[in-house]
């Protein structure tokens, strides 16, 4: 091989943390469905929710930031996840990160706050199906019953031995978004698949 072989292609293929795992997810019993939503833009946002920057940020996002602990809001293509009293994770479509980061930083201006691109820090999984709650209950101590964790609930907790963000996306506990750190993603995927071994055809 010589140096000529190195073509500075603009087309380097990104690889998600769970690249190659979908076939294993597809083999799960049909009471659950797991799909990696790769390459979502993710921005960590820090801002004082009662300060002037919060309003400017809300304009960019098209919605006020959720201030209820352990909740989330949808705003168009954005999902705004409460992570702390002055901290949110903004989920946006693939590729939307750089522009949104710039817009949010401009909105904050000189006010206290921070915007950090963490798109590749974590990956997201969609977990759906009538056995979703049972599957998570095998490793999660949070009560995900819809009465306790209604749609929009967003909790940071542990599932098995990894930290995770769980977002409830419906009122029947059968649609969750799971956000997990990239280095733990393969462990978590293996754990999910193993947890699904026992699930049968019916809920």
């Amino acid at each position: 091989m010589t140096a000529e072989h190195v073509s500075p292609s603009k087309l380097l293929r990104p690889l998600s943390p769970l690249d190659g795992w979908q076939a294993a997810f597809d083999a799960l019993p049909n009471v659950v469905a797991v799909t990696e939503i790769a390459f979502m833009a993710q921005l960590n946002l820090r801002v004082d929710p009662s300060g002037p920057a919060a309003g400017a940020v809300a304009k960019v996002l098209g919605s006020a930031l959720p201030t209820q602990p352990c909740s989330s809001t949808r705003s168009g293509e954005y999902q705004l996840l409460w992570l702390g009293p002055d901290e949110w994770l903004i989920l946006a479509p693939e590729g939307a990160g750089p522009e949104l980061e710039t817009a949010l930083r401009e909105a904050i201006g000189g006010e206290p706050g921070a915007v950090t691109d963490v798109s590749a820090q974590r990956t997201t999984l969609a977990l759906s199906g009538c056995a979703s709650r049972e599957l998570l209950a095998k490793g999660c101590s949070i009560d995900l019953h819809p009465k306790v964790s209604p749609m929009g609930t967003c909790v940071q907790t542990l599932v098995a031995q990894t930290g995770i963000i769980i977002v409830a996306r419906d009122e029947t506990a059968s649609d969750f978004l799971l956000v997990v750190r990239a280095s733990f993603a393969q462990y978590f995927a293996a754990w999910l698949i193993d947890a699904g071994v026992e699930l049968t055809g019916a809920c």
């Binding site: 091989m1 140096a3 072989h5 190195v6 990104p14 820090q121």
Partner: peptide, 19 residues
């Protein structure tokens, strides 16, 4: 580099370093 591109850039460096 953002870790999505970690393996691609690693390979690019590896290839460029072959000579």
């Amino acid at each position: 580099v953002p870790s999505w591109y970690g393996i691609a850039v690693w390979q690019a460096v590896f290839d460029a370093g072959q000579p």
